[in-house]
């Protein structure tokens, strides 16, 4: 039931506040309603009014009216403080499934004098962090997490503020036009590398890249990157406090190969994870490699852009469920 309501709400929100690359808050996308304390406060005003009337006491009545007027005035103040904020997501590299990353959000304002806490949360989830508008450094960050590989549409971002007296909750649900590719989680063991003779297609020999094998000569040190195997870390340098560095080896024997996934079966997700790990490994070793997976063939190559292409291809492979249905 709750899920159904949330679905309806999201559909309505898609119409009301369609996705945009950046948002400026105004009356079209702000919601405002008394907070829980606001309702308590209204009840209090009513009680004070009854108390004042029953004791025929003008001062209590004045107090009650004053508190009511204050609520009215704070409605405007609350809205004015919230409206006019400009929000824009920061740059974010693609991420691996299962690894949380910080999602940066830039908050700016055309006008001076914005104040109060701004609570940040993903739609339907708990408040993750709060920034105080009169004292914070851009960008504000939120944890973003996806357990599944593939294309990730950013969930709606909920921002709310209780400024100035906590009587009103001003909030908005923003959908940013912001796509992320979530790569599969790198996983061992490595995928076997095939050697395809370019002249006579179809003939191929398979060999496995095993850990510790074929790693001939130490070549150089590079920055450690996520996904590289731990045993490549130069621990000696790490102990000296130089940060995590990764040893790069040059191999004389094999410098190119193909990673081939023939068909989609129930082990698809695991296979993709292994392929992902292998891509990173090959790149770390400086090999040329090509990727051949159902629906996509990427000719051998190397370099950052090539790895990125491969990883994107891996992330976007249709799942078992999609193929069978």
């Amino acid at each position: 039931m709750a899920g159904f309501i949330q679905q309806r709400l999201l559909r309505w929100l898609d119409k009301r506040i369609p996705a945009q690359p950046r948002f400026s808050l105004h009356r079209g996308n702000i919601f405002i309603f008394p907070s829980r304390f606001g309702w308590l406060y209204l009840l209090l005003c009513l009680t004070l009014f009854i108390l004042g009337t029953n004791y025929q006491n003008n001062l209590i009545l004045l107090l009650s009216f004053f508190l009511m007027a204050l609520m009215l005035v704070s409605l405007f103040s609350s809205y004015l403080n919230f409206a006019g904020l400009n929000l824009q997501p920061g740059k974010l590299a693609n991420i691996y499934a299962g690894n949380p990353v910080s999602f940066p959000l830039w908050i700016e304002s055309r006008k001076e004098g914005k104040a109060g806490k701004l609570h940040l949360a993903w739609f339907g989830e708990k408040v993750q962090s709060a920034v105080e508008l009169d004292n914070f450094t851009n960008p504000a960050t939120l944890n973003l997490f996806s357990a599944k590989r593939g294309k990730l549409q950013l969930p709606r971002l909920t921002l709310c503020s209780y400024y100035p007296l906590g009587l009103f909750r001003c909030w908005t649900h923003l959908a940013f036009d912001f796509h992320l590719i979530v790569y599969p989680t790198p996983m061992l063991p490595l995928w076997p590398v095939s050697h395809r003779d370019t002249t006579s297609a179809g003939q191929q020999s398979v060999s496995c890249v095993k850990e510790g094998q074929d790693l001939d000569d130490f070549d150089s040190l590079t920055d450690y990157r996520l996904g590289q195997p731990l045993y490549h870390i130069a621990w000696k340098q790490a102990a000296k406090g130089q940060g995590l560095l990764s040893k790069k080896f040059s191999s004389q024997t094999q410098q190119s190969g193909w990673l081939i996934l023939h068909h989609i079966d129930q082990h698809l997700e695991d296979n993709l994870c292994r392929l992902c790990q292998t891509c990173l490994e090959m790149d770390a070793r400086g090999w040329e490699f090509g990727l051949d997976i159902p629906g996509k063939v990427i000719p051998p190559g190397k370099g950052k852009e090539h790895v990125r292409q491969c990883l994107v291809a891996l992330a976007l492979v249709k799942g078992v469920a999609d193929v069978t249905s």
């Binding site: 004045l62 009216f65 004053f66 009511m68 007027a69 204050l70 009215l72 005035v73 704070s74 103040s77 104040a115 109060g116 806490k117 105080e132 009169d134 004292n135 209780y162 400024y163 100035p164 007296l165 906590g166």
Partner: peptide
């Protein structure tokens, strides 16, 4: 609601709200 603001600012803010609300209450 706004713990990091300094007292003069808070006083000014609340004072302004009160002054706005008072005529309406009267």
């Amino acid at each position: 609601i706004n713990p990091s603001a300094r007292w003069p600012i808070l006083i000014k803010r609340v004072g302004k709200l009160c002054l706005q609300a008072l005529p309406i209450a009267v």
